[in-house]
Amino acid sequence: MKYITQGERGVKHLALLRRMFLKRMSGKFHIRFNDEEHACLVLYRGVFIGDKQNVVESLRRLLANPVQQFAWENVSDTKENIGGWIAPWIALSASLKNLELDRGRLSAYQHAFSSLPPVILKNLPVHRLNFQDEEAYLFLHQLSLGQPSFDLRLFFMGHPSKQELNEHVRTVLFVFLLGYLRSAPKQEENKKVSVVSRILNRFKTKGAA
């Protein structure tokens, strides 16, 4: 297991966390906040396992503090350690609830998300996911309407107060980590998608053998 080290403003651990959910990975996510503090999240096929309070607490720390190092440990038998199953959206909405991010984190997240290529927002039944910042989400949703893709910088513009910025960042963290933000379709599809689409077409139009 190899730790990845990143700077104070690094957010690559978020990309890995998102990947764990979407790729339904099983294993342990090790996080080091500094030389002394660390945390570990256990997942089985993209779902947290363990005590809900502990999972939520660890996630809150992960989101509210700079992560110095992180590592993924592939473990296929994490199911053996089951204390309980916590779906990602449950854990995330609970850990983001009233989470106050300091200026350093807000700035790091705003910078990171503003640098993303144009995105599309998938419809999110936010009221059913117990997510607190409905108003900020609706603003994001409004931005996504009527255009094929949009720049997240727009979402952070308008000099919102620290409180508003907090809500905006929490909203983007939620939709990003759960996979509701996607990149806009590129002009050229990636090669694998093109190959798979052609095979699918072959089956749909002509039949196989």
């Binding site: 996979g179 996607r182 694998k192 699918l200």
Partner: peptide, 20 residues
């Protein structure tokens, strides 16, 4: 086979936005 190919496409879609 078609169900498998749809799974592959879904996996590719999930991979398309990284902070890397």
């Amino acid at each position: 086979i078609m169900a498998l190919l749809q799974e592959v496409l879904a996996g590719e879609e999930a991979d398309d936005l990284e902070l890397g």
